[in-house]
Simulated scan of single mutants.
Amino acid sequence: MAARWMIWGAGLSFLADQASKYLVIHWMGLDQRHRVDVLPPFLNFRYGENSGINFGLFGGGDEASRWILIGMSLAICLALVVWIARAQKASRGMQLSAGLVIGGALGNVADRLLYGYVLDFLNTSCCGIQNPFVFNVADIFIFAGAAGLIFFDGRRKKPA
């Protein structure tokens, strides 16, 4: 199978995201406690409900925006699957990177379907700068996957 690494990347990132949310938010009770300092200020758990995209942008909280964001996420996942499937020889890095984006996006889609918003809980600060934003493991996979798609794109610059 040509896209084996993409499927593994998507599956494992989706499972890691959903497991982390279950453990931190439900099992540790972050939804009740709202804050847990793990390694302050570098790593803290802060409960967040994000009805928008990154940093709460476009978070009107209405049903229409929820379904639009679900549709956009699924369309991006489908586009990545088609792109990797059509690539002549997508490297393992490209496949894995696409899988990370897909798994992360599907993790956030699952949240929107289950709760109506995305569960966020990670907060990091450093060097005297207080970060007010929260994010989740899916966001990390989406970011890493997007960076990997750029890094492993397979195109080489021609020497001058």
Rank of each mutant, 00 (worst) to 15 (best):
M94R: 12
I76D: 01
P159H: 10
V137L: 14
L69Y: 08
F133G: 06
G29S: 10
A75P: 02
I53Q: 03
S51P: 04
G60P: 01
W5D: 09
L57E: 07
R33A: 12
G93S: 11
L15H: 03
V36D: 08
G61C: 08
W5M: 07
V38H: 10
R4F: 08
Q88F: 02
I84M: 14
A146L: 09
P41H: 08
F14M: 06
D120G: 03
N136K: 06
S125E: 11
R155A: 08
L100F: 13
N123S: 15
F152N: 11
M28E: 13
G148K: 07
I70G: 08
S13Y: 03
R86Q: 14
S91V: 04
A87V: 00
M72L: 15
C77K: 02
Y115R: 14
M1I: 01
R112K: 12
F151P: 00
F151A: 15
F133T: 06
I84G: 02
V82S: 05
S97E: 05
N50V: 02
G154L: 03
F42A: 15
A19F: 13
A105M: 03
V118Q: 06
D120S: 07
F14S: 03
G59K: 11
G29Q: 11
A160D: 14
Y117Q: 14
M6E: 12
L74S: 10
G59S: 12
N54S: 15
G148S: 10
G56N: 11
A10H: 00
L57P: 00
L119K: 14
Q130N: 14
I142H: 07
P40Y: 10
